[in-house]
């Protein structure tokens, strides 16, 4: 349907998006009519009854109960329509169907990890099947985050001390952006992830093989891809800028002072240790905030990241 305010909304890519959009259009259009109507009356009065001489007098009109009731009741009816419409849509959005496919999401400052039922873990990439309800059960490792996919019109806060959930059914294969919508600190605006919708078969395949695309890359190329995809860049730059974590540029082979006062050389073992148990050896001057990648990287991928870091010479 082509409507006046279509340009204000992203494409509808979930089964519940249309419902939200219909209400959005209804409110916007009714509001526009009221806004223009009232403004026109106001401007008309301002012109028609403009002051023509300084000693003009005006009639005494104090109130009119019929009018007062009219302009209380009509808006009341309108907002009641909006209320029940909105509540209905909300209920549909909050109660997932029983057969929904479950994915566990963990938010950490500042990345997303998704755990699938077969033990597979992906970082900053949410893979889902099309045309099947998906239920995401979410928790946070630290502060409050919020799971927001505009294309699906879904949003839910991710809390540190309890589980929250969100569900949607993607209508077609493709990609959408997942944002963190609750302010969570320095790299809040980089806490983005991709939602990748597969057909049912492709999804099964992906679950089996994971990122099979890695096969034909050189280790350093694969490492670069992983560093970008796994959310490392939110805290570690490759150009020497110091963010929440030390920069990767020229890091390999250098000596680094740790928070406990000791010094280590950044070698293969230090990088491996930092990925698997990141907060055991924290570089001096930084906070122990890095999440563990033990579940999401295999040995081959860790090797690839090490190879990539070796290439980043100053």
């Amino acid at each position: 349907m082509n409507r006046l305010f279509d340009f204000m909304l992203p494409p509808e890519k979930s089964t519940t998006a249309g419902e939200v959009d219909a209400l959005f259009h209804f409110i916007t259009e009714v509001s526009l009519i009221l806004l223009l109507g009232i403004t026109a009356v106001m401007l008309y009065f301002a012109f028609k009854y403009r002051r023509k001489s300084e000693d003009e007098t005006t009639p005494l009109i104090t109130h009119n109960n019929t009018l007062e009731i009219t302009w209380s009741v009509i808006p009341l009816i309108l907002v009641l329509i909006v209320f029940s419409w909105g509540y209905q849509g909300y209920l549909a959005k909050t109660n997932p169907p029983d057969d929904a496919y479950e994915i566990r999401a963990v938010a950490t400052s500042w990345l997303w990890q998704f755990h699938y039922q077969n033990g597979h873990v992906s970082t900053n990439e949410l893979h889902v099947p099309a045309n099947r309800p998906v239920r995401i059960i979410m928790s946070s490792d630290d502060v409050i985050h919020s799971f927001y996919v505009p294309d699906y019109r879904v949003k839910m806060d991710v809390l540190p001390n309890r589980y929250t959930q969100v569900w949607f059914e993607a209508t077609e294969p493709g990609e959408s952006v997942l944002y963190c919508a609750e302010y969570c600190g320095t790299a809040h605006s980089d806490m983005l992830a991709d939602v990748i919708v597969h057909t049912q078969e492709d999804f099964e395949l992906w679950l089996e093989t994971g990122d099979a695309i890695d096969e034909d890359l050189s280790p350093a190329e694969l490492g670069e891809q992983l560093v970008q995809r796994q959310g490392c860049m939110a805290c570690h730059s490759t150009d020497g800028t110091v963010l929440q974590g030390p920069s990767f540029l020229g890091a390999f082979g250098r000596d680094r002072e740790l928070t406990d006062g000791t010094t280590v050389t950044i070698d293969e073992n230090y990088i491996r240790q930092s990925l698997l148990e990141p907060n055991t050896q924290v570089a001096a001057g930084f906070q122990p905030i890095m999440p563990s990648y033990a579940a999401s990287l295999n040995d081959r991928q860790i090797d690839a990241i090490i190879e990539y870091l070796k290439t980043l010479e100053e």
């Binding site: 519940t16 909006v82 419409w85 849509g89 879904v154």
Partner: peptide
């Protein structure tokens, strides 16, 4: 204030 729409618009 409309619940379903606010889910989309909240914090934007």
């Amino acid at each position: 204030g409309a619940l379903s729409v606010d889910i989309h618009l909240h914090d934007t």
